[in-house]
Design a protein around this nucleic acid. Structure first.
Length: 486
RNA sequence: GGCGCGUUCGUCUAGCGGCCUAGGACGCUGCCCUCUCAAGGCAGAGAUCAGGGGUUCAAAUCCCCUACGCGCCA
């Protein structure tokens, strides 16, 4: 890489819905690439589809990218404000610039108005295909003035087509796939302006990437086939094309393109399910990219230090929620208890545990359970019994159905009734003493004790749990459960 | 239909002609640790590298064909 060349990447979503997880990955790769080379990352909103574009989508996309912790150097800050020297970063506000370039191409004879309807074009194609003939020249390329007037008076609105070369080939030097050759003869003249007067995606994109000085276009696989036409447009306009890199797509578990029927595909859904943005980022980075040592866990610094295009995979990758879960657990475990509490706030609130009810300090409880959290909602889920009585799980019920359970619980209630200090070590000593005095195996005592006090069979280490719960709660729950066991 | 891209354990991947009896990670199985559950440690099962032809002393790695999947233009 030429160090004097400024690296500028961009993500250019259409605001026609939420940010898809595939889009999130594309954003991430562009961001990582820019950060790796000390370049600039640009966000541009491609909102020329007036029917499907919505402001809510713009907001959702900005929120998604922000939540992932990816910052953009240029682009919209919100619906009104923008930053960066090459604005506007909303295509709808750049319409005149596309028209100007189209006029230029038209004037230079590099493009022409085409009056054919979609149906007519399709019919011609079908016919020549059936005969196995090569692509015919578009009939509108050399339209007589008379014929043109005829169309005009008939009220037909022209699209504008860009003239592709008749022979030779266009080579895309793809940074991930290598050289990809396209025979010019087989490339139809690309529509660059729709009959409505608006630019097509492929054209606006070229104009903006040039205007915004984009050096590397890193985008989805689905754009590879359009790239030769785009390169020809750059040339026709006298511009230097950027470098291209096409990413393979993300598949669902059944091998088809990841979509809603595979579950969550919106980035914000992952936030709402309690994933950590740094975990999602790490997971997404590895979905189609890897280092030669197959390293799995990266700090943010390691990630953008290691990321580069040659490590990107050519073949599509299947999204694996199970591995994402594991990775999220890894990140959760690395968090300090205070951080866990902070991150879990919305979920604690939602579960009625914030403000924290009377009981042990939340941070102590969280510290006790920290290595068990996989997702943020696990925090209230695992911690709630410290603050309120929860229904017995089936397993707990089973443990308590042991014949000696009732006696054990009453005995313990008596033992602990006036017990002090109510702390881990003395409690363990006393309870182990209780076991030998009653000639019971520790398990026969520990298990029902845990079940009665917490309502479940899994949980924190027993004696620390008792200490945090406090004598009153422990004894009350023991008595109540003992009484319930007929 | 044409063109283009892709194809290594179930999944993510390493591999860029000999180091591969194909390595790592998730998941799975077993063992250890242990008051439960996790976490952790150890061990294991799991890929004839899509199939078939070449090239080469030697191919997962290079070339060709086929199959399948996907994308773009219609």
């Amino acid at each position: 890489m030429n160090p004097t060349e400024e690296i500028r990447t961009r993500f250019a979503p259409s605001p026609t819905g939420y940010l898809h997880i595939g889009g999130a990955r594309t954003t991430l790769y562009n961001w990582l690439f820019a950060r790796h080379y000390g370049g600039t990352f640009v966000l541009r909103i491609e909102d020329t589809d007036e029917v499907r574009s919505t402001v809510d989508s713009v907001t959702a996309i900005l929120d998604s990218i922000s939540w992932l912790g990816l910052d953009w150097d240029e682009g919209p800050l919100d619906l009104e404000r923008e930053q960066g020297p090459y604005g506007s970063y909303f295509q709808m506000k750049r319409l005149p610039s596309y028209q100007e370039q189209i006029r230029k191409l038209l004037a230079e004879g590099k493009a022409y108005p085409c009056y054919c309807t979609k149906e007519e074009t399709a019919a011609v194609r079908q016919e020549t295909q059936a005969k196995g003939q090569p692509m015919p020249e578009d009939p509108c390329r050399r339209l007589s003035d008379a014929k043109r007037r005829e169309h005009e008076t008939a009220g037909r609105l022209p699209a504008v087509r860009f003239i592709m070369p008749d022979e030779g080939e266009t080579v895309v030097e793809d940074l991930i796939r290598g050289q990809v050759h396209f025979e010019s003869r087989l490339q139809p003249d690309l529509v660059i302006q729709k009959t409505t007067g608006g630019p097509t995606y492929n054209f606006a994109c070229v104009c903006d990437d040039h205007a915004m000085r984009i050096s590397h276009v890193i985008r989805g696989d689905e754009h590879l086939s359009n790239t030769p036409a785009q390169i020809r447009i750059y040339e026709a306009l006298g511009w230097q094309p950027p470098k291209f890199a096409h990413l393979s797509m993300i598949l669902g578990p059944d091998g088809t393109k990841l979509s809603k029927r595979h579950g969550a595909t919106s980035t914000l859904e992952y936030r709402d399910q309690g994933f950590l943005p740094e975990a999602l980022r790490n997971y997404l980075a590895l979905l189609g990219w890897s280092t030669s040592d197959s390293k799995q866990l990266f700090t943010p610094e390691e990630l953008f230090a290691a990321f580069d295009l040659p490590g990107c995979q050519k073949s599509p990758a299947t999204f694996d929620p199970v591995k994402l879960n594991w990775m999220n657990g890894e990140y959760m475990r690395a968090l300090a208890p205070a951080d866990i509490v902070k991150r879990a706030e919305p979920f604690l609130k939602n579960a009625g545990l914030l403000p924290v009810p009377a009981g042990p300090p939340l941070i102590d409880v969280v510290a006790l359970e920290r290595e068990k959290f996989k997702l943020l909602p696990d925090v209230p889920g695992r911690v709630d019994f410290f603050y309120r009585e929860t229904a017995l799980t089936d397993k707990a019920r089973k443990v308590l159905s042991a014949p000696e359970a009732k006696g054990v619980l009453s005995g313990l209630a008596e033992l602990l009734g006036g017990f002090a200090p109510f702390m881990e070590k003395p409690l363990e000593e006393a309870i182990r003493g209780f076991c030998s005095a009653k000639t019971l195996k520790p398990g026969q005592v520990f298990h029902p004790l845990r079940a009665a006090v917490s309502g479940r069979t899994d949980g924190p280490t027993l004696f620390s749990m008792l200490e945090l719960l406090g004598r009153e709660t422990v004894v009350a729950r023991l008595r109540k459960t003992a009484a319930s066991l007929g």
